[in-house]
Write a protein that binds this DNA or RNA. Structure first.
Lengths: 198, 198
DNA sequence: GAATCCATGTAATTGGTTACATGATTCA
DNA sequence: TGAATCATGTAACCAATTACATGGATTC
């Protein structure tokens, strides 16, 4: 309050990376520890503790989050982080700005890129294993989505509640995997067609 | 030929990253320069020259590619790289191994994750701008795919030709964008529904 | 006259992964 | 008895981006 002008400066100087905004977003839903964040972030963006802990320390130094030690019995103490007013402002100022184009890193597709050097049968086998992976991941995501919808049947309809966006973002990922499964089956079909003409 | 045993060792020691395999794959299609690789890689995986040039130097030191200077008139000389036998072996040995799970980096989705802090109208505006981006990118990819299919109508049917895989991989990216566009319109619809009930 | 294309690189910095260190509790 | 979960961190390394440097040819 007293040094509002200085705080505004801090806000403008801060150039944060994606992980910072992801941490702020997750902590705004509910205050929690670095360990919790890593687990919550797993379905969206796998990240290591060795990256999260220093990030939280940095955010605290910048005054965007604050923390307090929470004593626990039978397990190690927790350091629980909460988003400050400044942190919330930095996050909401960022939302709506022009994002960088999305980037997909997928070694499987890199392999397919040069799969013309392989026997078509081998490529079919690769795609079939990929389908197994896609189905397994989809089932996991569908379980998460089902639980979410069962637990918050009303909140997921309210765009002012974070559960609305968790609902649609989970649905999007599932649709994405579904679409890749359809495509994979199409490519398998094309490969088998071509093989039958030899 | 003389030191085949040593070469086999080199092959096994080499632990390459994704970019290395992408460079080997692109050079196996056709020998070309670092500059060419950056441009060819653009629709799949945007990468800087400052990462590609050192990578090619490293691959050459490992004997996986070889290069020769190509004199040009009216423009700078080119260093054209070609994949060696060892390089081809390293690449084909890698294809078919278990790939790391794919990772999507997308700041737009990170923004949506915390978009419950914003007015639903603002979120609708964000999604509509996203649709513009999606349509523009799709049109670009569809142009590339159309040209490819027109130029190689026979080759794209042959799974022993790299053009087959370029065809299906481009189609996959387009389907992906298409699917996200459908999803975006769905979310816009849900937001407008919720807004009308206030 | 300014911007873009062609062409190759180095240096500095940030982002991200892997390995290491510690230690109690719970479950198979 | 060994593995997994909870919990926090540091150190070393590899991956990737940004900035810098150079310079002729072409296009607007």
């Amino acid at each position: 309050m007293m040094d509002g002008g200085q705080m505004a400066n801090v806000k403008k100087e801060a150039k944060l990376n994606t992980l910072c905004y992801q941490c702020l977003g997750i902590l705004l839903r509910e205050p929690q520890s670095g360990y919790d964040i890593v687990k919550q972030l797993e379905p969206i963006r796998p990240v290591n503790t060795s990256q999260v802990y220093p990030t939280l320390t940095r955010l605290e130094k910048q005054g965007l989050v604050k923390s307090e030690e929470l004593a626990q019995t039978g397990r190690p103490n927790k350091r629980v982080y909460t988003v400050t007013e400044d942190g919330r402002d930095v996050l909401t100022d960022w939302i709506g700005t022009e994002p960088d184009p999305p980037v997909l890193r997928d070694d499987f597709l890199t392999m397919l890129y040069s799969a013309w050097t392989k026997d078509p049968e081998e490529v079919v086998a690769m795609l079939e294993r990929r389908l197994d992976y896609l189905h397994a991941t989809m089932q996991w995501l569908e379980t998460l989505l089902g639980e979410h919808r069962a637990r918050y049947p009303e909140e997921i309809k309210n765009p002012r509640d974070w559960r609305f966006f968790r609902n649609v973002l989970l649905a999007r990922r599932i649709a994405n995997f579904q679409e890749e499964a359809v495509w994979s089956r199409g490519v398998i079909h094309m490969l088998k067609e071509a093989m039958s003409h030899d």
